[in-house]
Design a protein around this nucleic acid. Structure first.
Length: 217
DNA sequence: AAGTACCA
DNA sequence: CCCT
């Protein structure tokens, strides 16, 4: 049976793979810095614990979220927005760790987006069963900066659609250390993550952590 | 699919 | 509206 789910990766980084005009899969791009990234995630979640946010429609997201940087993405009954203060702690979000900034800039450059200056990192924690429905990232002030997405822990199927929700999606298997970058003509493409399958990752156990770096302001 | 309540 |  033919399937369209690419499995890249041997042991290390692979060749950048174009997904669409302005969208790239960088297999293993974050592997070299994995330990620093994991330590940074631990520090972030100690200050700004993961929490499942509510949607304006009255549902609770299955993915647990935290943020680092001067702005953090939040959702509640009133809507989606970026906030300077973590509504859970009442404190500013933890600073964007240097290792995340460096990685995001290098990945953006590798995908053809120079001078990426992210000011926000949304940290998503997927437990088995968690998913993220198809959506666009449109709460940022300008769409000229790309989105850089870093996958850690359990593998997941990333769905990349088009500019309309009804456009067909391609499935991309994202493994620990993979990075996806989309910007330019792909910046507003719909995207999502299929339901996470159970499993145990050697470093992270039964979870997937996704870092999404963006310029919000 | 439409509700939700916000907003481009 | 990244939700069901």
């Amino acid at each position: 049976m033919q399937h369209d789910l690419f499995d890249t990766r041997a042991a290390g980084p692979g060749e950048p793979r174009p997904l669409a005009d302005g969208a790239w899969h960088l297999p293993g791009f974050a592997l070299e810095g994995e330990l620093a990234l994991l330590a940074a995630v631990a520090a972030i979640s100690a200050a700004a614990p993961f929490r499942q946010m509510d949607t304006p429609g009255g549902y609770r997201m299955s993915v647990a979220m935290s943020n680092a940087g001067s702005l953090g993405w939040v959702s509640d009954a009133h809507g989606y927005r970026y906030a300077t203060i973590d509504p859970l702690s009442g404190q500013p979000w933890p600073a964007l760790p240097e290792c995340m900034l460096q990685l995001a800039q290098a990945a953006a450059a590798a995908a053809g987006f120079a001078h990426f200056q992210p000011d926000a990192c949304l940290v998503n924690r997927y437990a088995p069963g968690s998913k993220l429905a198809l959506h666009q990232d449109r709460d940022e002030r300008d769409f000229s900066a790309p989105i850089v997405s870093v996958s850690l822990g359990l593998p997941a199927v990333f769905l990349l659609g088009g500019l309309r929700r009804s456009d067909p999606t391609q499935k991309v298997l994202l493994q620990h250390g993979d990075v996806v970058v989309w910007g330019g003509p792909a910046r507003l493409r719909y995207h999502g993550v299929s339901t996470l399958k159970p499993g145990l990752h050697p470093l992270l156990g039964a979870q997937r952590i996704n870092l999404t770096l963006r310029r919000a302001a």
